[in-house]
Nucleic acid binder design. Structure first.
Lengths: 134, 134
DNA sequence: GTCATTTTGAAAGTGATTACCATTTCCTAT
DNA sequence: ATAGGAAATGGTAATCACTTTCAAAATGAC
């Protein structure tokens, strides 16, 4: 899964990847750091976690997610891909949308507004199936 | 335009509305405060600006926009409405999308994922018509 | 092994936002 | 009008996520 990835895989990065693999959940840098330090007192420091996340994001292995609350979350993705979320305001779980709504519109927006899309943020908040049922 | 709005219109709020009316542009709380203080040394303080924006947002007169850079921007809207932006990474201008892409999808997402949408963030980054032409 | 480069980490610094709290302003009953 | 109480205000300090700094430690090439 790491084949063909063009970046130096430092210890910090490896550790971060491990944690993200385990949690399978949107996690902030501080979350990740906390989890590391829980099971290992001399796990990488917070600075390294931030730096590793930065590298991993630009390598396309991890995506950063802005939920608009001033705290960035991170998540493993298939290299180069990304996706958006339905974030439950009750249980904080998040479901992935199986397709990016923006990519489909890219051409239309280009034509209509003459705007060349380079990136976007899209997250949806509400109540998930499970919490609605309760 | 302020008819039927259910909130106390304090001095701070009025001043903030004035500024937002003039700039017609995404502005941060600090931007707004700066502009006020430029033309009037005893314009409301920063704290009041933040508080006013909070009231105005919950009254639906102003929308808060998260661009994912850790600085919230604000903008006048028709009461209760909202819209999304094409933000140019060259000139920082922003064009409004004339319709909300998410509202259209609400029903589909409800059916497909059982998710009840309550809110969302959507902003698109790239290069605008003018800057592309250059 | 040696030396240069890269990585790391603790602490200090930033920048936006919020909490505090004392002062001022506004409204209402007298 | 005016006194009293609630709401609004503003400067400062605190918070919080994140970044910078810089010296020490790990890595890698020769």
């Amino acid at each position: 899964m790491l084949q063909g990835v063009d970046m130096r895989l430092t210890k910090g990065c490896k550790k971060v990847l491990e944690v993200l693999e385990q949690v399978q959940e949107l996690s902030s840098a501080q979350d990740i750091h906390g989890l590391m330090r829980n099971e290992d007192d001399k796990a990488p420091g917070l600075t390294t976690v931030y730096r590793s996340l930065e590298s991993l994001v630009s390598a396309g292995l991890v995506q950063a997610v802005a939920l608009g609350d001033g705290e960035r979350r991170y998540e493993l993705v298939k290299p180069g891909e990304h996706h958006h979320h339905l974030v439950c305001d009750k249980c904080r779980s998040s479901v992935h949308l199986d397709q990016c709504l923006i990519e489909e519109l890219e051409e239309g927006i280009k034509n209509k507004y003459g705007f060349q899309i380079k990136g976007h943020i899209l997250e949806i908040f509400g109540t998930c199936k499970v919490c609605t049922a309760k």
